[in-house]
Design a protein around this nucleic acid. Structure first.
Lengths: 351, 351
DNA sequence: CGCGCCAGTGTAAGCGCTTGCAAGATTACG
DNA sequence: CGTAATCTTGCAAGCGCTTACACTGGCGCG
């Protein structure tokens, strides 16, 4: 079932059919009606691959994320997709599971499909890829990784400032023993966050006791990390999570162990995913404007009159602290702490 | 940057380059090395659109879901994708937001890309689409909707039996006033679920008081629905949700209103998404084996020796009840119920 | 030493669609 | 009416790749 079949049936040339289907050039009304009818009767669907090949442009964007399961990424995708559809674009999405190797193949897949723009919203990175994409000529947006280049827009969230707000807030509540839960410590951007936490903690209170652990992204990872902290003997009054998705698991584990949040331990997340407000206790977190990010990506990737095609720009996004129910004043030392299996000895803090 | 450039640089013909890249036919080792080097130097990426056009087959599957945000759909997608990758396939995903119109355009998009198989995992449907897909010749899997046809495999979850287990269980705990929370009542498959609930409730206890409300899929929808029930005056002892995703919002709202779950009201979900075990109280629900479904889809869509290409089959999936913390014996009438703003008068039950 | 084979390559015909160019059909106008 | 201007439409050249088929040497064997 191809253009020719339709053309034959409508008794016109393929060129005319093409014009009708694409609404370009002038076609007599009666002819176009005949073509449309033939299309209808034959249930013809244009071959997009051929169309792209011949047309030279795809009206398709690509988006690569680290973990589609994490609502943070999904929200950005959804916003971008909505914008794209509004402008007649499609968006292909690929998932890397934080594996650099998958990132590479995903990028190649996108490049192979000749997307007209690519958003790379991941936490892992290979320097060689940045070079490759810079040379690819297509507009690219990196989120959180990479650096601005001629055709590369860079969106960075001021993670440090967000973390600073969190720590400042917790410190103000009297917390002096904190644990940080991260994930994928081998990935530099993520590791950087841990470092930021450590630095800031040291800044705020030189004698702050801290500990860091890492597990997989997601509730299960958070749960495991919480378990690890609790069984280590270190007993923080606040647990700071690298993102909300992991914090969900932390909340669950504390609940399971009968530790009250926030009375005994305060918990914070990062991102402010929708779910953060739907768990109990609702999560205190740093808000990252995901919709804004989605729009920015669209603006950078989709050509248009309004868009200044912010090539090469570096855009910094700020975060805002959202205080909900999972944080409170640190329990006073005197306060009786329930003796759970996990709170045996208060061993010295790990650095 | 195309095959010809590479061919020129490697001083061979495009045919040879193609053979090297696809690992087909015999090519002298030294030649192939030369080609590979040229590819490397030119950073050449094959144009997949052209490849597909010329090759005639795409090794790409399509999957259309109603709500990517709902982990239920995402889990199926992830399993399918993993299977697909293992067999050298890609999978394109599209989201309909429960809108039939989006379903139609998504199907056309997939057909346009000439996917070699299509999974339609949605709750909305247009009969005309079924016909169209049946005629399309490509293998198709419908989940929950449609009917088996020559090239169409049908996977259906025995929703009724699952709901029956839930109601039986709740009834056994003494619940006699229940509310059902659904979504998108205009979509037949979803509406069917409400009907199932109503029938079963009537079966189990002729004098059971029931009420049904509907809102959007997701925690917010669940929250709104719960609010609606609570402010209606009807005071159920159990709230049965059409899926876990909505139940999350119900749990949140009850918590916010100071209503204890499960002491005052029991809550159940459906699907058993990962999050169900990570909220507090953990959700009692019916387990749908999403991984199995993902595998089945892969098996039906990806040709292979092992796969019996289950065309035209109808596969029924059974569910299992997972009891967690959100359900308990119905509070005795005498039990003091905290007088929250929402529990004003106990008005008669709505039918 | 001649012939058949086969490994290794090249040639060229598409795949289904878009589009510049030009021919044929209409319409406008003097 | 004739001719120019304007519409409609068809022709055909690709887009980048795969692949059937043809061709070229080198080798084994009688």
């Amino acid at each position: 079932m191809n253009l020719e079949d339709v053309a034959k049936r409508a008794k016109v040339s393929t060129a005319t059919v093409s014009r009708v289907l694409n609404n370009v050039g002038r076609v007599r009304h009666t002819t176009s009606a005949r073509v449309l009818q033939a299309v209808e009767e034959l249930k013809y669907t244009p071959n997009l691959n051929a169309r792209m090949l011949a047309g030279g442009q795809s009206r398709t964007l690509g988006m690569i994320v680290s973990n589609l399961e994490n609502p943070f990424f999904l929200d950005i995708f959804r916003t971008l997709e909505a914008d794209a559809h509004r402008r007649g674009y499609e968006v292909l999405v690929a998932n890397t599971d934080y594996r650099p190797q998958y990132l590479v193949s995903s990028v190649h897949l996108m490049l192979g499909r000749r997307v007209s723009g690519l958003a790379v919203v991941v936490s892992e990175m290979k320097p060689s890829l940045i070079r490759e994409l810079a040379e690819s000529q297509i507009p690219v947006v990196f989120y959180d990784v990479g650096t601005a280049r001629p055709n590369i827009t860079n969106i960075k969230v001021d993670y440090r400032k967000g973390m600073q707000r969190i720590i400042e807030y917790l410190h103000g509540l009297g917390h002096r023993r904190m644990a940080f839960i991260g994930h994928h410590p081998t990935l530099e951007p993520l590791n950087d966050r841990k470092r930021t936490f450590l630095e800031l903690a040291a800044d705020y209170a030189p004698r702050m006791k801290v500990m860091t652990v890492a597990s997989a992204d997601g509730p299960i990872g958070g749960q495991n990390a919480a378990r690890e902290i609790l069984s280590s003997g270190f007993r923080p009054t606040a647990i700071v999570c690298v993102n909300d998705f992991m914090a969900l698991g932390v909340l669950r584990e504390l609940h399971a162990q009968g530790i009250a949040v926030p009375d005994e331990i305060s918990v914070t997340g990062f991102d402010d995913i929708g779910l953060a407000g739907f768990v109990s206790p609702a999560l205190t977190t740093a808000h990252i404007p995901r919709e804004e990010i989605g729009h920015l990506i669209g603006e950078a990737l989709i050509p248009g009159p309004r868009s200044r095609r912010s090539s090469g720009r570096e855009i910094r996004i700020d975060t805002g602290l959202v205080v909900r129910e999972s944080t409170a004043r640190a329990p006073s030392r005197a306060a009786g702490r329930r003796t759970t299996a996990a709170s045996r000895a208060r061993v010295g803090a790990a650095k």
